[in-house]
Amino acid sequence: MNATVNSAVRERMHVRFLLSDAGPLLALILLMAIGSMISPVFLSKGNLYNILSQIAVLGVGALGMTYVMISGFFDLSVGGVLSLAGVLVVGLQPSFGFTVALLAVVAMGVGIGCANGLLLRTIRGDFGASIMITFGVGTILAAVALLYSNGYSMTVQYSRFLSWLERGGVAGIPAVAVVLMICAAVLHVILRYTVLGRYMYLAGASARVALSSGVPVYTIRTIALCMSALMAVIGGLMETAQTASASPVAGVGYELDVVAAVAIGGTSLSGGWGSVVRTIVGVLLVGVLNNVLILVGLSTPEQMIAQGLIILVALITDRQRKSNLS
């Protein structure tokens, strides 16, 4: 008798789990339905194209952050990385050529990720330490970007790659969105199908259990931080291409947007749960939400407010789901 009760409970929890999993997706569908009712423009080809090109920068950052959050850390340096990558690639191009500049910023991204990871490993940092340390590193990087550019936006010189990113596309899909899709596919496959991906989940689920099961927790988290810095570099390139200039303040507030998108998608803030698919849903949800808010006629500040509140709601529901489960 006990067994049947148990399995009934399990069944119910399973259903609830599925429902809460599908929540963001349902919200996305609902939002799209609302959007198409509010404005005839919403479902037009032009508007969808706009949405896709607008979410790309956010999307790549969110992909990287997904790794970091699943592995149990936080990365608030991505805004600084994004700004710095933009101004560096533009600044280095005249003297060294675009390819070298590109390689340099990619190397910079990996370097910053490693630095974050090693720093946290040295001090045996926990979740809270990762917040503070990456916050400090991000601030430094943002200031370096300002210093490098003297505080001004830098105009982009012509390069085939950047102009493809800006205007190109594949089968009517903007180039930045194509890059996003490729990144998402690669990161999804790694997370879902490789040993490295499994290690990400194990490191985030419980550092203690993972450590005493032979999982190299800090190495894994360092890789995650590298991934996230690398993605922020790609985001910086996209942003630079799209605005045809590199602004040293392009990344201000980026980290919050990114965390918000990941959290809205349903990846847990406390590690061990989540997926690339959820993050993509979260990113789409934010993108569509912004688009709808604009179509409705909200200004930028109003969007900021709405977004802040929506993340708070996401946090609260995440918490309540957790307490319901335990």
Binding site: V195, R198, Y199, Y201, L202, A205, S206, R208, V209, A210, S212, S213, G214, V215, G272, L325, S326
Partner: peptide, 21 residues
Amino acid sequence: KNEGLLLSHPMYMNVTMTRLP
């Protein structure tokens, strides 16, 4: 509970974590 098991992750993940290769 704190050092041995990932209580809310499936059993197979718990079993294989010591030697994924």
